[in-house]
Amino acid sequence: MAKLQGKKKRDSYDVVANIVIVFFAICNLFPIYWLFTSSLKNSSDVIKMPPDWWPKTFTFSNYTEVFDSQPALRWTFNSLYVAGLSTILLVVTSSMAAYAFSKLRFKGKMVIFVIFISSLMVPKEVMIVPLFRIAQDLGLVNDLHGMIWPNVAVAFGVFLLKGFFDSVPDALREAARIDGAGEVRTFLQIMIPIVKPGIGALFILNFVQVWNDYLWQLVIGQEKEMKTLMVGIATLMQDLNPNFAYKMAGATVAAIPMLIIFLLFQGYFTRGLAGGAVKE
């Protein structure tokens, strides 16, 4: 009888919890819904009161105007190139560094790791001026690579992946060495497949971070052709053009790649966050 009452109590709790979760999910998704539907309206319908929750007439002219009047394709390529290459380089360097800190033995390892991780406490905005001076001296202003390299030397990836490498038993590495595998082969063929969920989580987190890195990309990409999609779309918001639907279309174009990336990597993302919390 007590078990039956306990089960009913848990079921009631699950129903209430699911209702609360669905409510907050709708609250979070509504801005995306409003952004997309507004981009398909006329400008006057966007600011209409009371609003039309669903467009009465669909128009795609806002999207064609974005790509006709602005170099949106170039901005999209710039964003994909910067975010993609930055993330790939970060994954490569972070995985190697995390493996070294986790499995290799060398003098001063913990001291170096603490100093390295301490850089997470320094906001990037504090380093904008010296970073810009360095980029200027290296001729990387108005260059996409000037947006890439500062995002490669980030300690967060090492911190995240070290937890995954720590969860891998040392016996696997020792067995590989007994079988004659070198350090590089052990790292690539044994360790990397095991920590793949962590790499997937790092990939999506860093890709989103670099994609939305508005301030640094604004500082480096000063010419119109060198702007990224986020910076370019932001310039539309600053214009005095009252066509709000046109601006909504631009914001939707900037948001769609992020939604696609998340849908592609959501499996790795959820497994990576859950796996990183488990320690042996």
Rank of each mutant, 00 (worst) to 15 (best):
R105G: 03
G108W: 07
R74P: 00
L120Y: 10
W149E: 07
N78M: 00
L85A: 08
A83I: 10
L89W: 05
L85T: 15
F67M: 06
A153L: 13
D166T: 08
K48E: 14
G108Y: 11
V126L: 15
L131R: 11
K103R: 07
G163W: 05
T59D: 10
I148T: 12
S61N: 15
M121D: 02
V152I: 15
A83P: 01
Q136M: 04
V129L: 15
F58C: 06
Q70W: 08
L73G: 10
I117K: 03
Q136N: 14
T87L: 10
T76L: 15
Y99S: 09
K107M: 12
S95D: 07
N142L: 06
M110R: 02
L140T: 11
K56T: 12
M121R: 06
F106R: 07
V126I: 15
T59Q: 10
K109I: 04
K103W: 00
L160T: 06
A72F: 12
I117D: 00
V82Q: 01
F67W: 10
R74K: 12
A155D: 02
T64C: 04
Y63A: 07
P55A: 04
G139W: 07
I148G: 10
D137S: 15
I112Y: 09
T87E: 01
F159S: 08
V126H: 06
W75T: 01
A97H: 09
K162S: 09
I88C: 11
T64H: 06
V152N: 07
W54Q: 01
Q70L: 08
T64K: 11
K107N: 04
N151R: 12
V111A: 12
F67N: 03
